[in-house]
Every structure is written in C-alpha cells, then in structure tokens.
Amino acid sequence: MVSIGGLQWLDYVQAGPRRAMTMVTTQKKTYLDPGPGAPAYYGPLHAGFRRALNSVDPAAELDRVVGRAVASNLGKAKVYRQAADGFLRLLPRGATGIKVAESAWSEAELQVRMHQMLGVRLLTGEQLLVAPYCKEPVLDQESADVLLYLMESQVEHMLPEATPVVFDTRRGRRFKLHHRANRRQLDAFARGMAVGYVRQWELAA
C-alpha cells in the first residue's frame, strides 16, 4: 500500500500529465529514503497554524514562526510571511482550534492520509475541517474539489459535522465544496487518479 498525505495528493491533482510523473518520482524517493530533509518544508508553518488557533495572539505566534525562518532562509521566510498573512485573513474573528482525528481514504493500493488538517470552531459554534494549502501554484476550485470530496468522505471520522474547507494561504482564498457538486463524478475521478498514481509509482525509478 502506497501512502501519501492529503496535501501531497492535492499537489498531484494539480500537476497535470507532464509534471505528474516527476512529482511521483520525487515523492517515492522521499518515501523510501526519508533523510534529514524529509520533514515537510512547510512543517513548521503547519505547526504554527495549529498553535495560532489556540493562542491569545495568533499574529504574534505566526510572527515567531516567520522570524525563525528568517534566521535560516530568507526565501523560505518570504513564503512563510505570505502564508501566515493569508491564514490570518482567512481565520474568522474569535475562532479557536479543536482536535482533529486522523483518517485516510483508500483506493487501488493508494492511501491518502488526512493528517495535516486543522479543526476550527467559530463563535457561532460551527466547525470547520481545514486543509492549509501553502504552495506557490495557484489553487483553483476544480482541483480543490477533489481534495474536498475526500475530506467530506472522512469528516465523520475526523471531526463530525464539520464543514471541509481548503485555505489557500498564499492568496488568502477559501474553497468549499458546493452542495450541488457532482459527487459521483468526483468519486470516479478520484478513484481513476488513484489508479494512475499507483501505476506511476510502480514505474518511477
């Protein structure tokens, strides 16, 4: 069974046919040989989002994360700054963090793990299951829908009654699966993509 994270899956969905094989090859090498660079580039930022949700001063919490990035890599710090600012714009006033259980969607020997998700409780009592997308490629609704469908299929195991959303933190944009979205079509597409991913994994050097 091949196992990848939900945000890695989103990268694959967005990649298109030309970049998909290169991406799978890179992910396979990281999976099989997790060296010192294996912890996600965005790992400290994701952890900072989680702490910010339970901080009395979310902006200050994320400023510290960005500050540590400045000390190590100015390019990384710029990315972190953009994502932190976007996250704060997307975060509703008074929202707090809540614990999220991990789950996974599986098809054709591929397991997509929902392990970087954030739980958010709004002042109204509404709950959100948030996937924080921080990458440079601009996210569109069509790609977001594929991950949102997988999140929706697992939400009762992770954060019952929550609404799945994707935060594109670099652009400060929020994506939600429309109630009229064709879920049968999304299911078929996701399963087909999973079959393709596993085959590319087998062929990757």
Results as ranks from 00 to 15, higher is better:
N73R: 01
P132M: 08
A59V: 02
V112A: 10
Q116A: 14
E202K: 03
L122I: 15
P44K: 02
P164S: 06
M158Y: 06
M1I: 08
I98M: 08
V79E: 00
T26E: 12
R81S: 07
L122Q: 15
G196P: 03
R180V: 04
L123D: 14
T25N: 12
P132F: 08
M151C: 10
G5T: 07
V195T: 04
S143A: 07
S3C: 11
R18S: 15
V130E: 07
S153L: 08
A104C: 11
Y31I: 04
A84L: 03
P132T: 09
P34M: 01
H115L: 12
Q111M: 14
T30L: 10
S106Y: 11
E142C: 09
R121L: 14
K78R: 04
L150A: 06
K28Q: 12
V166F: 02
A190F: 00
V195K: 03
R19F: 14
N54I: 02
A101S: 11
V198L: 02
A104K: 13
G125F: 15
V165F: 05
A83G: 01
V120A: 15
T30W: 12
L128C: 12
G172Y: 01
V24L: 11
Q116S: 13
E61Y: 05
H179A: 09
P164A: 05
M21F: 15
P160Q: 10
V155Q: 13
G35M: 11
M193T: 04
V24S: 08
H157A: 14
R191P: 03
V130S: 07
P36T: 09
P160G: 13
H157I: 14
Q27M: 12
T25H: 11
V70F: 01
Q8E: 12
G97P: 10
Q116I: 15
E161Q: 13
T124N: 12
G6N: 09
V155A: 10
L148A: 09
V79L: 02
A40Y: 06
G119E: 13
R18E: 14
V13I: 15
S55L: 05
G16C: 12
Y31Q: 05
